[in-house]
Each structure stands twice: as structure tokens, then as C-alpha cells.
Simulated scan of single mutants.
Amino acid sequence: MVRRMRVFLLATLCWAGLVASPLNAQPVTPPYEMVRTLQSLQAQVAQGNSQALAAQRALLLRMENDFMDAPAVVWQDPRNARAAVIHLLSGGHPAVMRELMKFDPLPSIDVNLMNGALAYVEGREQQAAELLSGFDPRELPPSLGGHVALALAAVTVREKPEAALTYLGLARLLLPGSLVEEAALRREVFVAGTLDNIERFQSLSITYLRRFRNSIYAPDFRRRFMLAIDTLGFAKSPEKFALIESLFNEFDEDTQRTLYLRMARTALLHGQLEIVRKVVDRAIPLAMGGTREEAMLKIYMAGATMDAKNIKLVRDTLWSVDKTLLEPDELDLLDAVYSVMNSVRHWPEPPVNVIGEFSSFTPGNKPGDPEWITPVMSHANQLLTETGKLLDKAGNP
């Protein structure tokens, strides 16, 4: 398989003129054929091929040089003119399009399409939306229409998210299996999320993970998915959690563990203890012993299972947590769980500065005390001092 892929890439680069032939010939490839090669490489990128990603970058550079050197007559072929726009929307340098727009006559394509694509890649969203909205992606050749639909979605999503969803769906339909489909699907998931369309968010996420889980850009999907878990409130509502629960199985174990940890913390802080218990039960088998992840899961489970009947079990669980593995904010959470445990033990209210086997010994020093001195130590020192004074008085009547 690896050998076939190397042969494929070598043949692709030779076809595009990136690798010299045995006779050192430098074939002149029409722009539209170079774009076909580019899209073929991008399809491999969407499947996670890092070699294809490197080849794509090299090909884009070669296309920029060849396109800049091509005479005006080349761009009178509509296929080549469309190729110039596709190249730009695929990551090509905008200087190429600016150079082509100096020709007289102009390339054989609507000038608004060239200007709209240029405005899009240069970040002029309003102008891009005005220029590109005059084109129906379905009426363009699919290789170009998919790119235009993706661009239209990007420039309309802020003000018209529903319209952006339509454009993203069109992009996927026009260029199935391509990097355009991968990008459109990845973005469509989160637009659906912002619209609180949970069922669509779920179904699109599953589709992405099953089609493009190995994509070079899948890490971006996972990062944004984790943010969406918080934003959409899946850990704050049992009903929403039930909708998303099965989706986690689509992720790899490392991602599952990270998602479960994130959900457990959010659910605990919002009092959704049943969600915490479910999430921790699933996450514990995925966490290695003696790790920070396992320590945090113990804290979450302790916080979610605390009542008078099992208070000793909760105590033992918390005592097994290695504090040296925790960050400052995580130590704060541990102290908060200890505090709740003390409240359960000493209902209705724990005594001030409770000392004993259930104490978390949280920081709370007097002004001027070193950081390593705990309240218990300060209190003990005070008692010793007072005892010493009493003994002095007893010995010196």
C-alpha cells in the first residue's frame, strides 16, 4: 500500500512538472489539468495523507509560477480561467489573480467571480458576499461550484447562519470525497450547533467522524467539538446529554477520555450528579493508573456520590488522590469537595477549622504566615504557645 502511494505521488508530481522526466524534459501542463492534480492531492489530504499535504504545497508553488508565466491566450480557454479561480480558492497566492486581471482581454470568466474570489481570500467579507451572491453554485461546473459555495458560506455565516448551512450542504454535494467536502462538513457541524439544532449537530458529527476521522484537519474538529460541548450545554441537561451520549463512541479513546473529563467537571459544577456518575464510569477504564486524569476522575466521582451512607468510601477515594499531580485550580476543586464532605459528616454545619481525618487542610493562613503553614499548624502553634505561658506561670508563682 505504501509503495503504491509513493508511485501515485511520484506520477502526480511528474504529471504536474514538479519532477523532471528521465530526459529532463519540462512538460507544459494546461492549468485545468494542474487543478485536477491539485484536487486529487487534496482528496488524499482529507484522508490523512501527510505526504499528499507536502506535495500539495509544492504543487501550489509550481502553479503560481506557471500561471504567472502563462500568456494571455492561455486564459481564453474557459477551463483554464476557471482553474485560476479554483487555484485561488484552494490556497493559491492572490498575486496570481491580480496579474491575470491585468490582461486585455481578461480571462474568459465573469470578472465578478474573479473579484469575488479575490475579495474572499483577502478577508474583504462584505465585498465578497456582494460579488459572489450573484452566482448559483449549482449552475457552475461542480469543481468550481463547490469552492464558491464554501466561500459563500464563510461570508454569510455571521448574519445568515441558515443560509450558510444551505451553502455548506451544496459544497458537500458538488465535490464529494474532496477537501471541500471535508471542510464544509467540519464547518456545518458547528453552524448547526450555534443554531441549537442538536440532532443535526449529532448526525453531522457522526458523518464527519466516519468519513474524515483521519483528515489532516481532524484535530481542529476535535478541538472545536470540545468547545461546543460546553457552549451547547450537554453537561448541564440530562435530556441533551442523552442525545449526545452515543456520539462519544465515535471518537478514539484518547479523545473520549478528554471529553469525559471535560463533561464531568462541567456537570459537577452545575449539580448534574447523574451525568457525572455516568461519565466517570465510562472514563475510568480509559485512564491509566497514577495519572492526573485518574486523580481528577476520583474527585469527580467523590463529589457525585457523597452522602452520609458512604462517607467513608468517599473519604478513602479522596485520600487516594495524589495532590502532586494536580494544578492549582484542580486543588481548589479538591478542597471544595472536602468541604462538602465535612458538611455531610458534621451536618448541619461543620465546626470552624475542623481538625481530623476528614479535613482537607485548605490554605487560609494569617497575614504574614509562610505559604507552607496550614491553618491547623497555626492553630497548633497557638495552643502550644498558650500552654507554654501557663507552664511558665505555674513554675514561677
Rank of each mutant, 00 (worst) to 15 (best):
Asn353Ile: 03
Met34Pro: 01
Ile275Asn: 00
Ala46Gly: 07
Gln44Gly: 00
Thr305Ala: 09
Gly271Met: 08
Arg158Met: 07
Arg187His: 04
Val344Thr: 05
Asp66Glu: 03
Gly177Ser: 10
Ile206Arg: 10
Asn80Glu: 10
Leu60Cys: 01
Ala83Glu: 01
Leu144Ser: 05
Leu326Gly: 04
Pro238Gly: 01
Val279Leu: 05
Ile216Asp: 01
Pro107Tyr: 12
Leu13Val: 02
Pro141Ala: 04
Met5Leu: 15
Val73Arg: 12
Leu195His: 14
Leu53Asn: 06
Ala117Ser: 15
His270Ile: 05
Glu122Asp: 15
Leu89Ile: 09
Asp77Phe: 13
Gln44Pro: 00
Ala235Asp: 02
Glu274Lys: 14
Arg187Pro: 00
Tyr120Asn: 02
Ser178Gln: 06
Ser178Gly: 06
Ala84Cys: 08
Asn49Tyr: 14
Arg98Cys: 02
Asn365His: 15
Ser50Val: 12
Gly145Leu: 11
Ser108Glu: 07
Met1Thr: 03
Gly91Gln: 11
Leu174Asn: 08
Val121Asp: 07
Ala151Met: 11
Asp369Arg: 15
Glu99Lys: 14
Tyr167Asn: 02
Val74Asn: 04
Gly17Asp: 08
Thr166Ser: 13
Val314Tyr: 11
Ala81Cys: 01
Thr194Leu: 14
Arg200Tyr: 05
Leu325Arg: 15
Ala81Ile: 04
Leu259Phe: 15
Arg222Leu: 08
Leu168Thr: 06
Val74Ile: 13
Gln126Arg: 11
Leu131Cys: 05
Ile284His: 06
Leu326Arg: 13
Asn65Asp: 08
Asp252Cys: 07
Met63Asn: 04
Ala267Asn: 09
Gly17Ser: 08
Leu113Trp: 13
Gln256Tyr: 08
Pro105Gly: 02
Asp252Asn: 13
Gln256Asp: 01
Arg98His: 07
Ala242Ile: 06
Ser339Ile: 02
Asp254Phe: 10
Asn342Thr: 09
Leu195Lys: 14
Leu9Gly: 01
His270Lys: 14
Leu165Ser: 12
Leu269Ala: 06
Ala171Ser: 08
Tyr217Trp: 09
Tyr120Gln: 04
Glu188Trp: 15
Pro71Asn: 07
Asp104Ile: 10
Arg186Phe: 00
Thr324Ser: 15
Glu327Val: 07
Val35Asn: 10
Ser205Thr: 14
Leu185Asn: 02
Tyr260Val: 06
Asp329Arg: 14
Ala380Gln: 14
Lys278Ser: 08
Leu170His: 06
Glu181Ser: 05
Phe251Arg: 07
Pro219Ser: 07
Val7Ser: 11
Glu330Val: 02
Ala264Asp: 03
Glu159Ile: 09
Glu64Cys: 01
Arg4Tyr: 14
Gly92Arg: 15
Gly271Asp: 05
Pro348Met: 05
Glu33Ser: 11
Pro348Phe: 10
Ala128Tyr: 11
Pro350Asn: 02
Ala336Glu: 13
Leu170Gly: 00
Asp196Val: 04
Arg223Gly: 00
Phe248Met: 10
Arg223Gln: 14
Ser320Arg: 15
Arg82Ile: 03
Leu131Trp: 13
Glu182Phe: 10
Pro363Val: 03
Lys102Trp: 07
Arg36Lys: 12
Phe248Pro: 00
